[in-house]
């Protein structure tokens, strides 16, 4: 049994028991979210914790990168945590949970396999809600400079003098 310390001094077991999330993130009390590895924590202002956790999972299922930590997905969808956006998100996530129940799962988060969650998403792929989340993720996730190293992308190069002396033609396996 894993007894590693979790955020805020809770053991992993305690965390698990309090979490509604089967996915990557945990809901701790209300209005505060933290990751299992404490790599991120975020204060919520408008969305329900479970809604946000579900949204983060949905974001990961749309663009799953196993080498990208939750904190980046959290950042990518954090902008929806406003009074203005909340009603649309709550409704969209409620529909997502409804769809999960329709397939015999308790809710989206507790749908254990990505494959099953993806089936649920495929069914709603054409909805405005899905399309909004997906299209905003394209910039919300991939335009975070901090994720670029995961892909090897080096970003800005002018200040380093370009690649003329830094390997523009260094391919050695051809």
């Amino acid at each position: 049994m894993d007894t590693r310390e979790g955020p805020k001094g809770l053991t992993r077991r305690q965390l698990l028991s309090r979490a509604t999330a089967a996915g990557a993130s945990f809901v701790i009390g209300s209005g505060f979210m933290a990751a299992r590895d404490a790599a991120w924590a975020t204060e919520l202002t408008a969305l329900k914790s479970t809604t946000f956790a579900t949204l983060v999972q949905m974001a990961r299922d749309i663009y799953p990168h196993d080498r990208i930590g939750d904190q980046f997905y959290v950042l990518a969808v954090k902008a929806y945590d406003t009074a203005e956006a909340a009603p649309v998100i709550e409704a969209g996530i409620a529909a997502l949970d409804q769809a999960a129940r329709g397939r015999g799962f308790a809710n989206y988060l507790e749908t254990g396999w990505e494959r099953d969650r993806v089936d649920i998403l495929r069914d709603m792929e054409r909805s405005d809600f899905f399309q909004m989340i997906r299209s905003n993720l394209v910039t919300g996730l991939y335009n975070q400079k901090a994720v670029w190293p995961v892909f090897g992308y080096e970003g800005e190069s002018y200040s380093k003098g370009g690649y003329i002396h830094r390997g523009f033609d260094d391919i050695d396996w051809l």
Binding site: E154, S157, Y163, R166, D170, I171
Partner: peptide, 9 residues
């Protein structure tokens, strides 16, 4: 199967 790093140059 190996790096290209096409963005360079």
């Amino acid at each position: 199967d190996k790096p290209v790093r096409m963005w360079r140059g």
